[in-house]
Simulated assay, not measured.
Amino acid sequence: MAISRAQMLKELLPGLNALFGLEYEQYSDEEHTLIYESASSERSFEEEVKLSGFGAAPVKDEGNAISYDSAQEAFTARYNHETIAMGFAITEEAMEDNLYDSLSARYTKALARAMAYTKQVKAANPLNNGFTNSYQTGDGVNLFTASGDGVTGGGGHPRVDGGTNDNRPATAADLNETSLEAAIVTIAALSDERGLLIAARPRRLLVPSAGVFGAERLLKSEQRVATADNDINAIRSMGIVPEGWSVNHHLTDSDSWYVITDVPNGLRHFERTALETSMDGDFDTGNVRYKARERYSFGVSDPLGIYGSPGA
């Protein structure tokens, strides 16, 4: 339905002092780049397969034959690209009679804002829903899971060797020195599909807007936070979270927090078609139509690329 003069009656009359409501600042439309590895795609979907390597080498007794191990595929992560599109139309008469501004310029900016906002919401979706079976990874369990967490769809990320990897605390905890240190220890203990340690390390702490003050104190204080002790802040002095912290304003749980690790092929973003805009005029009605469209997907290949807690 086209925007007509009836929907902008005040803009057709003299005496109006100001138009407002479309000039709000917006948070960065690049927040997803701090979480996801990005790649382009030329297909309708992408798949990434996690491989299982070999286990620890056994002792070969004198005179005996060597042992042979086998490798296999562990699981597949699939990315189905979504098409995100929106448009608007303005009647010929509304554009002719508007006294104050270019309608197309104002609403084109509003369209771009809506598209950028949608992209950031889509990017935050795996994190916002990863603590329940609303979002599961290619191994068939919740994105964030731990042995003994008592959550449906949880129980740890299963490995080919029969073990599991945890990427959340078994008991949900708020962000503090103790819980972050426990997360760092858990990340250091992550193993590959055959139980070999993978030397995973924290890279960045990610928090919602309500968590920025705690994150700043936790990573920047020289002494331990919220204690009377004169101990050093070991997390800061060791530089164990080298990229510091960042905020994502589209995280919906105010006390959740996340640690992005250096495990490759963790959280992935594929761009199938970059943002495109176009306009055309309808000969019969005189209406002018504007459209924006892009195709992309956000997801997780290796869940060991992130650790998260929903907060206590």
Rank of each mutant, 00 (worst) to 15 (best):
S41V: 04
N17T: 11
E42D: 13
L304E: 06
A85D: 10
R268G: 01
V263T: 08
S297G: 04
Q7E: 14
V241I: 15
D149S: 00
A274K: 15
N233C: 05
S40N: 14
G286N: 00
D97Y: 13
R43L: 08
G140Y: 05
A234G: 03
F144A: 04
P158Q: 07
A274E: 15
L304G: 11
Y258R: 06
S28C: 03
T83D: 12
A274D: 14
M86I: 07
G55A: 14
R295G: 02
G21Y: 07
D229E: 13
F270M: 02
V160F: 06
G163K: 09
Q223K: 14
T178G: 03
H269C: 13
Y100W: 04
N133Y: 05
L99R: 15
P242D: 06
E37Y: 05
L275Y: 08
S4Q: 11
S256G: 10
A312Q: 11
R194A: 01
G299T: 02
H32D: 12
D262R: 03
K122N: 12
K10T: 11
A234N: 05
P126I: 09
V300A: 03
Y68D: 07
G154M: 02
S52G: 10
F298M: 03
N128G: 05
P310A: 15
E42W: 04
D149Q: 07
S221F: 04
D69E: 13
G153K: 05
R113W: 06
A274C: 06
L16I: 11
T178N: 09
A170H: 01
G308C: 04
I240N: 03
L304A: 15
A71K: 12
Y307H: 01
S4W: 01
V141W: 01
A85S: 15
D61M: 08
L304R: 15
N125I: 00
I187C: 03
E37A: 13
Q26M: 14
R236I: 04
N265W: 09
H250W: 13
A116L: 13
R106W: 04
Y117F: 12
L275E: 10
G195D: 13
E276F: 02
R204Q: 11
L13I: 13
A172G: 12
G239I: 02
Q26P: 00
Y258K: 01
G153M: 06
